[in-house]
Write a protein that binds this DNA or RNA. Structure first.
Lengths: 104, 104
DNA sequence: ATTTGTAGTCATCTTTTTCTGACTTATTGC
DNA sequence: GCAATAAGTCAGAAAAAGATGACTACAAAT
């Protein structure tokens, strides 16, 4: 064994796991954008002012890994990739609207 | 004017503001603990394994600033300070339970 | 008067996140 | 073939977050 891996114990803090799904500088905005329909990498890069390739790339991969977004290769016209909200992602929308009411 | 202050424009991303309230290494656990009743600084420091004065102090201040916790000086017995959940904080609990169901 | 308990702050160091710019691979248009 | 578009990766730099240890302030107890 040449690699050391730290095993993180999940301390059973419900909020923590959930918050990690959308934590980071760009994930909340990408999640918001995803509610408007499928989106492309270059499109996000253009629309998220102040963002960069690396960060958007990592955010998309992590949102995909946590099951909120799905990635699809569209084999048509200009041939591109689309990211869209999954069912799990859609289920989260009304909950955030409820939380929104509390911020006032 | 000797200080420069960066004015952050709130881009009206609902999830973002909400997530910021509980983002950070210790805030979710402190929020969880607050549901059990009032708590003290030294108590948190002892119970949150691996934490430290500085981080707990900052977390408490920010939770207070965002209106989830309130601070009270108890002028009795050993004279101490108590942090408790506000009404706003209490209103968030059921919502997090709902979100919890989605993680499975 | 010195120690103990409570609740911190401050400067500095370390770790984690985020940003930058150069480079890559595949497809399509000219 | 050559340039452009699309979707990235990678190494290194910069910025933000978190940890450490020393120090402060107040009240009560010995």
């Amino acid at each position: 064994m040449t690699t050391n891996e730290v095993i993180e114990v999940n301390n059973s803090c419900p909020a923590e796991a959930l918050l990690k799904m959308l934590s980071g500088k760009w994930k909340p905005q990408i999640f918001l954008r995803s509610q408007q329909g499928p989106m492309r990498f270059s499109e996000l890069l253009r629309d998220l002012k102040g963002s960069n390739k690396q960060s958007v790339s990592v955010a998309l991969r992590e949102l995909e890994e946590s099951g909120l977004l799905s990635k699809a290769t569209i084999t048509q016209k200009p041939l591109h990739i689309e990211y869209s909200l999954t069912e799990k992602g859609k289920a989260m929308i009304p909950i955030f609207h409820t939380l929104e009411l509390l911020t006032d």
